[in-house]
Design a protein around this nucleic acid. Structure first.
Length: 367
RNA sequence: GGAGAGGUACCCAAGUGGCUAAAGGGGGCAGACUGUAAAUCUGUUGGCAGACGCCUUCGCUGGUUCGAAUCCGGCCCUCUCCA
C-alpha cells in the first residue's frame, strides 16, 4: 500500500467508525495517537509500543528539524526506520511549538523567525520549509505550518491567524508531495464558529485528504470547545478524516467522536505516566500516594498490558519514589494500553448504541 | 588528661536579644498536567482548630531581661587535634 485512503464503515449519528490506510498499515478509527515529539515515545521500546495496540504515533517537525535535522532523518531512510517503528507516523508541523515556546521573533505572511530553544540560533521557517522538512522526515501524514490563536483571542486576531493559516496551507499544498504522504489542512478560528467554518471552507477549496481542528482545548470553557468542534466538523466533508489536534482527556475524546472526529493525539497518557498517574476504567490512580505502599495488586485488575503482568502497585510506587526509569516505562505502557482499550470500548459502544452511557461513565470517573 | 569546634524541626543547614513556629535545601504528604524546552510545575510539612487563634518547640537545667534559639552559670553529649 503506497497511498493514503480513508473509509467510513459505520455511523452512529455524527460519529463514525472507519479505516485509515497508510503505507505503514491500516488504522481503525476513531484512533488515538500517542505523542513522540523527538522521534520516540518517551521511555518505551517501539516493540512494546506496538504491543499496546498503537498503530500510529506522532512526532514533531519542529523538534526533529532542530535536532538531529530533517536531512539526518532522511539519510537514515526516513522516520520509520530511524526510530525503528513499523507503524504509521504523523508529524506535526511545529506551528504550535514555535508559538508556544516563546522564542518567536517575528511572524508574517512570509513565515516565522524564531530562536531555537536548544542553542538559541536564529531560524527562519516558511510554510514551504515545513513541508520540505516533512518530505525528508517521511511521515505518512504531514501537517502544514499553521498559526493557532491563543485563548482568549479577539475576533480580529483570530480572523487574521485563520486567514494566514489558509494562505500558508495553500503554499504548502503547492509543494509536490509524494503519493505515500498525505498533507492535511488545519482549521483555525479560535472560538468563533463563523471563522472556523469560513476557514474550513477555504481549506476545502484547496482540497486536502484530511482536515485537522487546531487551536482547541487551549483554555476555553469545555462547552465552547465542544460547540466549536461540532460547528467545524459539521461543515467538513464526510468522506475525509477529521483530526482534533492535542486532544486529549478521555471525556473530550468521546465528545469529539460524538461530534464526528476520527483522530486524536495527546501527551496525557505518556506525560502523566512519568508523573505517576495511571488511567484505569475505575478512575485515575496516583501511584505515588502512600496508600499504595503495600498494595500488591496490579495497576488495574484485568488489564492485559505488560505492566499489569506481574508488576504490583507497591513495586511501581517504590520505583517512583526511587526515581527509577522503569516506573515511567511501566506506567507509560499501561496508560498507552488504557487509551487503546478505551478507544476499543468507544468503538464498541458506538456499535451497540451505548455511547451516551459510556460518556456518562467516563465523565464520572474523569471529571 | 589537655586544646579547639559544635549540639536548631524527619534529615542537612541558616539564624547570634523583639519583625522567629524559626530562611534555604533534602525527604515526606498531596495536587496539576490536553498538536511534550515537562523524570516538570504548584501547594503543604510542630500540635490542636473550619477560621480568628491557642498551646508546645532550637541538647538539659538554672539565671539575666519587659522580652531569649540568640546573653550568663552548671551539667550532658558529639567531632577534630595533642598527649
Amino acid at each position: 500500500m503506497t497511498h493514503f485512503s480513508f473509509e467510513v464503515a459505520y455511523r452512529r449519528d455524527k460519529a463514525r467508525i472507519g479505516t485509515l490506510e497508510t503505507p505503514h498499515g491500516c488504522i481503525q478509527t476513531p484512533v488515538f495517537m500517542p505523542v513522540g515529539t523527538q522521534g520516540t515515545i518517551k521511555s518505551v521500546l517501539p516493540s512494546d509500543l506496538w504491543d499496546t495496540g498503537t498503530r500510529i504515533a506522532l512526532s514533531n517537525t519542529y523538534h526533529l528539524y532542530l535536532r538531529p535535522g530533517a536531512e539526518t532523518v532522511k539519510a537514515a531512510g526516513g522516520i520509520h526506520s530511524f526510530m525503528n517503528w513499523p507503524g504509521a507516523v504523523l508529524t506535526d508541523s511545529g506551528g504550535f511549538q514555535i508559538l508556544s515556546l516563546g522564542h518567536l521573533l517575528s511572524l508574517n505572511d512570509e513565515g516565522v523567525t524564531f530562536r531555537s530553544h536548544i542553542d538559541g540560533r536564529l531560524i527562519r521557517f516558511t510554510p514551504e520549509d515545513a513541508v520540505q522538512a516533512q518530505l525528508d522526515i517521511g511521515a505518512d501524514i504531514i501537517m502544514p505550518l499553521d498559526q493557532p490563536s491563543p485563548y482568549p483571542a479577539s475576533f480580529n486576531e483570530a480572523k487574521e491567524a485563520a486567514e494566514r493559516t489558509v494562505r500558508w496551507a495553500r503554499r504548502a499544498k503547492n509543494v509536490d508531495v509524494p503519493a505515500r504522504q498525505a498533507l492535511f489542512g488545519i482549521v483555525q478560528g479560535s472560538v468563533y464558529p463563523e471563522l472556523r467554518q469560513g476557514c474550513a471552507a477555504d481549506l476545502m477549496d484547496i482540497d486536502f485528504p484530511g482536515y485537522a481542528l487546531g487551536g482547541l482545548s487551549v483554555g476555553e470553557p469545555k462547552e465552547v470547545f465542544y460547540e466549536i468542534t461540532e460547528a467545524t466538523t459539521s461543515v467538513l466533508p464526510d468522506s475525509k478524516p477529521r483530526y482534533l489536534m492535542g486532544v486529549g482527556h478521555p471525556v473530550d475524546i468521546i465528545e469529539g467522536v460524538l461530534a464526528g472526529v476520527d483522530m486524536f493525539d495527546c501527551v496525557l497518557p505518556t506525560r502523566n505516566a512519568r508523573h505517576g498517574r495511571a488511567f484505569t476504567f475505575l478512575g485515575p490512580l496516583n501511584l505515588k500516594n502512600a496508600r499504595f505502599a503495600q498494595d500488591n495488586a496490579p495497576i488495574e485488575e484485568g488489564c492485559d498490558c505488560h505492566a499489569c503482568q506481574g508488576f504490583s502497585r507497591a513495586y511501581i510506587r517504590h520505583l517512583l519514589q526511587a526515581e527509577e526509569s522503569l516506573a515511567w516505562t511501566l506506567l507509560t505502557l499501561h496508560n498507552l494500553r488504557f487509551f487503546q482499550r478505551f478507544m476499543n470500548s468507544l468503538r464498541r459502544a458506538l456499535q451497540e448504541g451505548s455511547q451516551l452511557n459510556f460518556l456518562e461513565k467516563m465523565r464520572k470517573l474523569y471529571p
